[in-house]
Nucleic acid binder design. Sequence first.
DNA 1: GGATTGTACCTATCAGCGATAGGAAGTCAA
DNA 2: TTGACTTCCTATCGCTGATAGGTACAATCC
Lengths: 195, 195
Amino acid sequence: MTAGRVAERREAKVASIVDAAWKLAAEHGIAGISLYALARAVGMRQPSLYEYFDSKHALYDAMFADGNRQLFERIEAVSFPRDPRAAVKKYMRTFLDFALEDPARCELLFERHVPGFTPSPESYALAEEILGRAGTLLHEAGVTSQGDIDCVVAMVGGLMAAQLSNDPGGNRWSRHLNRLVDLYLDDVITRSNGR
Amino acid sequence: MTAGRVAERREAKVASIVDAAWKLAAEHGIAGISLYALARAVGMRQPSLYEYFDSKHALYDAMFADGNRQLFERIEAVSFPRDPRAAVKKYMRTFLDFALEDPARCELLFERHVPGFTPSPESYALAEEILGRAGTLLHEAGVTSQGDIDCVVAMVGGLMAAQLSNDPGGNRWSRHLNRLVDLYLDDVITRSNGR
DNA sequence: GGATTGTACCTATCAGCGATAGGAAGTCAA
DNA sequence: TTGACTTCCTATCGCTGATAGGTACAATCC
């Protein structure tokens, strides 16, 4: 099953378009990407983009998958401590740092800033994989109930959203991450001992 | 300073347009409002709307102010317990219920789902008033540092966002509100006793 | 190696959007 | 009654995403 020169060239072109789209998104916001400007950025006319993406939403879907792949690779490159609680903290910190370093990417991946966009099941699978790893680490740290996992997810997401809307580039909210995780994990343990 | 029949009629018209806009927003999402459809809904042609709003963003600004006024009135109608902690919980519950009962309104007021929109200072003042009351109640409950107030705000916002994106209409996240508030307030007290 | 098929791009054009220009009625006040 | 203001209209603009149809080039097949 050789890739073929055609498919290879095509994939490279798709990747270069997605890269250019990220740059435009950083400049004008994720919803501010214009297909005209994007095409010009990669040396094309606007209709030629439809050779690579069936619609603008398909482009967003490719960016969604690409962003999650970036996060996945970032996580893969991190070595997590043995201690489950420390591992949870490092995982969440990795996630939060990644989310905060590119607002436009964050808007697409974790907030829902593109009006009609919903990721395709294939693209969403990677996101679920990443969320699943968080669940596994939390499980090892003693957080076994779905409700508790939900709470941690909501807390981290809340820190991310507040940080990004109210103090982008700063750490007014993100600095509380470790303490909040500790607080919640302690409570889970207390509750499990109590019964 | 009589209102004048003209100004009165005008205000009524503005209000009816904003009401129609909320209905369209509930149907097509906050970003899915079309000025053409909105004008038709109030028996006008699209350019006539510009008699009442200088731009679409001005309409969103009026809706933002209107939504915050709705929340303010909702809060005003609630009688809060003497006990500071119970008051905080009821305040947050009132807020969360309000936010979750209309996703489109929530998108405009608390998430940032309208690409280029930022509320005007005048409209934002009401939102700050509402946030300020939360701060006051938290203060009375022993939460005095800005960092701790930030954390509670982030947690409630996190629950809201997670609830709305992953289980709209349900209570998978919102049911944890009281417990999370208790958990955090207990921790604040513990910390203040420790030093 | 020439014919055939598919790839990759183009120009021209469409319908939808928010926004503006300019004009025609209707309403109000001197 | 007259003049100014209010309210709405039609026509049109520029921009957006999307489609139609055509052309040059590359890859593949006989």
